[in-house]
Simulated scan of single mutants.
Amino acid sequence: MDLVARDIMTTDVETAHPDDEVGDVLERLAKADFNGFPIVEGDRVVGIVTQGDLVRLFRKKDRLVWIPIGVPPFSETLPYAVDFSLDELDLGIDFVKNARKDVREIMTRDVVTVEADAGVGEVLSILAGEERDINRVPVLENGRLVGIITREDLLQALRTELDP
């Protein structure tokens, strides 16, 4: 049997909208067991955003800081801390400013996608390619989002296919 994207994709795809606020998307990602959302308008993919994109908004002088999630007393945080000192007091102001931005301002617009009938080789070349560090690829059918494939999905499918 020749595997195609449709065979290995996850069809229950969590998405975000370009008008969603960065803070809301960051909070959703902190609670999710994955680290990125396709950004959709209707059922059309217009971008993608990852935790890495969001964390870069709060990087100060090449140092990462704890990013509080929710409202005070900030019961949750994202695990990206290495250093925070009192000389970075403007972080609070910067956090509020960035948290209220629309995701459209930071999303990657040049999204690599794959068609539902694409072969596993094409999916493999995207997710294992060296040109871009892609961990997930949205799956389209007639231009509409129908699924997503992560590196883990691909590896599990290959293991199942190769294991008699």
Rank of each mutant, 00 (worst) to 15 (best):
M1Q: 13
M1K: 11
M1R: 12
L3F: 10
L3Q: 01
D7E: 07
T10I: 15
T10A: 14
T10G: 15
T10Q: 14
T11V: 15
T11S: 15
D12I: 15
E14Q: 09
E14K: 12
E14L: 14
A16M: 12
D20A: 15
D20K: 14
E21D: 08
G23C: 04
D24W: 13
D24A: 13
E27T: 14
E27Q: 13
R28A: 11
A32P: 04
D33W: 04
F34Y: 12
F34T: 07
N35M: 04
G36T: 03
F37S: 11
F37Q: 09
P38S: 09
V40D: 08
E41N: 11
G42Q: 11
V45D: 05
V46Y: 08
T50I: 06
T50N: 07
T50E: 08
Q51F: 05
G52T: 10
D53N: 09
L54H: 04
R56K: 12
R56C: 05
R56W: 09
L57H: 05
F58M: 11
F58I: 06
D62F: 04
R63L: 09
L64T: 01
I67T: 03
I67G: 04
P68Q: 08
G70N: 07
V71D: 12
F74E: 12
E76S: 14
E76R: 13
E76W: 15
E76P: 07
E76Y: 13
T77V: 14
P79G: 02
A81L: 13
V82R: 12
D83H: 14
D83M: 15
F84L: 06
D87C: 06
E88C: 04
D90Q: 12
D90N: 13
G92H: 13
F95M: 14
V96R: 13
K97P: 11
N98K: 12
R100Y: 10
V103P: 01
E105Q: 09
E105F: 08
M107I: 11
M107A: 12
R109V: 14
V111H: 10
V111W: 09
V111N: 08
V112W: 00
V114P: 00
V114K: 01
E115R: 05
A116E: 08
G119C: 00
V120T: 00
V120Q: 00
V120P: 00
S125P: 00
I126V: 09
L127A: 01
E131A: 12
E131N: 09
E131D: 13
R132F: 05
D133N: 15
I134K: 04
N135G: 10
R136D: 01
R136C: 01
V137S: 00
V137K: 00
V139F: 02
L140K: 01
L140I: 02
E141L: 05
N142M: 06
N142V: 04
N142F: 08
N142P: 02
G143I: 05
L145V: 08
V146R: 03
G147K: 09
G147V: 07
G147Q: 05
I149D: 00
R151L: 01
R151I: 00
E152K: 06
L154M: 06
L154C: 02
L154V: 02
L155W: 03
L155A: 05
Q156S: 03
Q156T: 02
Q156C: 01
L158W: 00
T160V: 14
E161W: 14
E161A: 14
